[in-house]
Computed example of a mutant assay.
Amino acid sequence: MDRQRISRLAHAHHPIAAPLSDGSVARLLDRALAGQEAGRALDLGCGEGAWLLRALAARPAWRAVGVDLDAAALTRARETATALGVERRIGLHHRDARDFTAPEPFDLVLCVGATHAFDGLLPTLAAARELLAPGGRLLVGEGYWEREPSRAALDGLGAAPEDFADLATTTDRVLADGWTPVYGHVSTAREWDDYEFSWTGSLAGWALDHPDHPDAAAAREAADRHRADWLHGYRATLGFVTYLLRRD
């Protein structure tokens, strides 16, 4: 199975591709959209458009653009937008987020759980800077080390120690790059566990429901491998922080 299909199946019951509860998503969006009745939002690595669709449903005068490489996820986003009646206020682009440009800047740029598309946090900040309007806001989610990673944690994530830093150092890097956190959320252990059990459970459940499908065995294997990597590797080691940032 290709990684995009695995991700779609795994996120069937947790459409936000990050360890965030519905309440946390709502609070982050409320702060990101606060004080601005109308505006333009951009999600770099939007997947099925969950962040943008929530924003449009809550703010009738906002418009949005989503960019992603997963054509099937974008199709789902269009279908959901139509069901919500917001399809005329969203544009979806099937392309690499690193290559995306726009004639006008955006009031809000989002990249939550997708900084790997830019090879890390600082390149993501640089890309967002070019697309953000003066006074605009950036909502970005990134991993960090809650403790020194073990070899099992690194192997489970396919990561190197330098891929992340601790929360203080990560925040210092954001500040040094000219951004100011005006809000933020550190995902809780409960949010992480819910996310991982939902991810692996949705994928394994699909395999059980479709035993004769050619991809069933691969889906079950991916779910079992991911669960083991998490429980025996990076659980309580990898954290996740979502910043709401403004430029100085």
Rank of each mutant, 00 (worst) to 15 (best):
L131T: 08
L84R: 14
H210K: 00
Y183V: 00
G158L: 03
D229Q: 15
D119F: 11
G156A: 10
V182H: 10
V140G: 10
A218D: 13
G135K: 07
L138M: 01
A159P: 08
R147M: 11
E148L: 13
S202P: 02
H226V: 14
R190M: 10
W179C: 05
L108H: 03
W206D: 06
W179V: 01
D224T: 15
V182R: 09
D229A: 15
R98Q: 08
E221G: 02
P161E: 14
A216K: 00
D215Y: 11
E130K: 14
D166Y: 01
E87C: 08
L157E: 01
F106N: 04
L167Y: 00
D107K: 07
R225A: 14
G120S: 01
S187E: 06
R88K: 11
G201F: 06
P211D: 12
G158P: 09
R173G: 11
D212E: 12
A176Y: 08
A168N: 14
A204C: 04
P214V: 04
A153Q: 05
R151K: 13
D212K: 02
T169P: 14
G91P: 05
D229C: 15
A97V: 06
I90K: 03
V86C: 10
S198Q: 07
D172P: 00
A219T: 02
Y144V: 04
W230Q: 02
G158I: 00
A159T: 09
T170N: 12
A165S: 15
D96Y: 07
C111L: 05
D177R: 01
A228K: 15
P149E: 07
V109I: 04
R98E: 01
D224H: 12
V186H: 08
R147F: 01
A223G: 12
V186W: 06
D119G: 03
A102H: 10
V140R: 11
D172G: 10
D119I: 00
L84E: 12
E146R: 15
A217H: 12
